[in-house]
Design a protein around this nucleic acid. Structure first.
Lengths: 216, 216
DNA sequence: CGGTCCATTGATGTCATTCAAGAAAAGTGG
DNA sequence: CCACTTTTCTTGAATGACATCAATGGACCG
């Protein structure tokens, strides 16, 4: 991990109007290598994080090593605001990535309250919605439905060809499956021409209607 | 379902200091019979709810009838603040229950902002934390661990004998299992003297250490 | 070009589900 | 309060979905 401080232009008279500007000015920028830990499960949580580039995953471990991936965060997204005293999920760099970090207290001084609160509020609500979808997926969907749901979610935010930032193990741990099962389901979706893979990290959807039906 | 309006003492000069008082004064009180729907999945969400008595469950259905229970809410808890345009989970009366309901906008006029925001904020954060725990449970725990976790969570907020408000089907749909599996795991936990049941709706923990270990 | 890592595929095993029955509890009406 | 019905819970046996174990195949990288 490496640090680099922002230009200290605290003399700027105007208050920043967007959270992005506030962070660009006041946050510390940190770089993490692939698989490096950003913060640990059980660590104290008074920092706010924002992805600048790369992808971050959150994950939680059971004592015997089983892992559950909570979610993936892309450029522009806030993470790490779990609001208890400590983080319940760890955050790790899925790819090499750059992250802005700021103390909640420091941010409060910089920003006009409304702007800040709204951004954090939105991030927490988005996390909650995702977690609720995740609960449904993990609790009541079959392996095939899980994988279809996962591909669908990725594909509907991308135009045509979708790049998978994560490997099979991360997908498996996100979906509550094993890598073998994920692999088999992907093969199955390909053999029925629902999706088409170019290598194991890029795909495009061939039959949207079928994919949506399979995602249940 | 039946309605009853609160005493309209809006002349009170002082602003209420606790959310409870605000709601007691300004909210509509509604009574729901067991299994009655409080709001539906996909319904518009601009009301805030608070359990006065009884227990509420949230649940979501897949098109073929499979059900995932999101959680249970007890007296004093706020629910229904999912913050998207529509509810993603339905809310139903698990038992006969009384609920306070208020429009978010109306509440905003009544309360001093800080008090209100803090209460909603706490409720949303609590929901998020629960959902994250739920994800771990559903994704990576075995049937036995799921049931043990469930009993443990119930038991640690109650003194000695714990009353189960919900039936086996609700437990199963909360844990992502079938009623038969839940029943078998409960039998197993009894036969190993980890818990002891008096009828099928009341139990007490016999071996806390073992229960905690099994909950993983 | 050989080595390492990751993904796929096949064979087998296991845990949870499904199907089917019976037992206990809860509701109903006399 | 007791028979009777209905619902819910438990238990057993068989099936099935996903996991595990083991081997092969492909991609990336020095």
């Amino acid at each position: 991990m490496s640090l680099s401080y922002p230009f200290a232009d605290t003399k700027t008279a105007d208050r920043a109007t967007s959270l992005g500007e506030i962070l660009d000015r006041a946050a510390v920028r940190m770089t993490f290598a692939k698989d490096e830990e950003i913060y640990g499960q059980e660590e104290e949580a008074d920092l706010i994080y924002r992805v600048v580039s790369g992808v971050v995953r959150t994950a939680r471990f059971l004592s015997d090593g089983r892992r559950q991936v909570g979610g993936f965060y892309r450029a522009g997204e806030l993470f790490g605001l779990e609001m208890g005293e400590t983080h319940r999920y760890a955050a790790e760099a899925l790819t090499d990535c750059v992250v802005q970090v700021i103390k909640r207290s420091a941010l409060r001084a910089e920003a006009d309250e409304g702007e800040l609160d709204r951004a954090i509020w939105n991030a927490v609500c988005r996390d909650l919605e995702r977690a609720q979808e995740h609960v449904l997926l993990l609790g009541r969907k079959t392996a095939c439905e899980k994988v279809a749901s996962f591909l669908k979610e990725l594909a509907e935010e991308a135009d045509d060809a979708v790049e998978l930032a994560m490997g099979r193990q991360d997908i498996a741990d996100y979906l509550g499956l094993t890598i073998e099962t994920v692999s088999r389901m992907l093969t199955q979706l390909q053999s029925t021409s629902v999706v088409e893979f170019a290598g194991c990290r890029q795909f495009r959807v061939r039959k949207w209607d079928v994919l949506e039906r399979l995602a249940a």
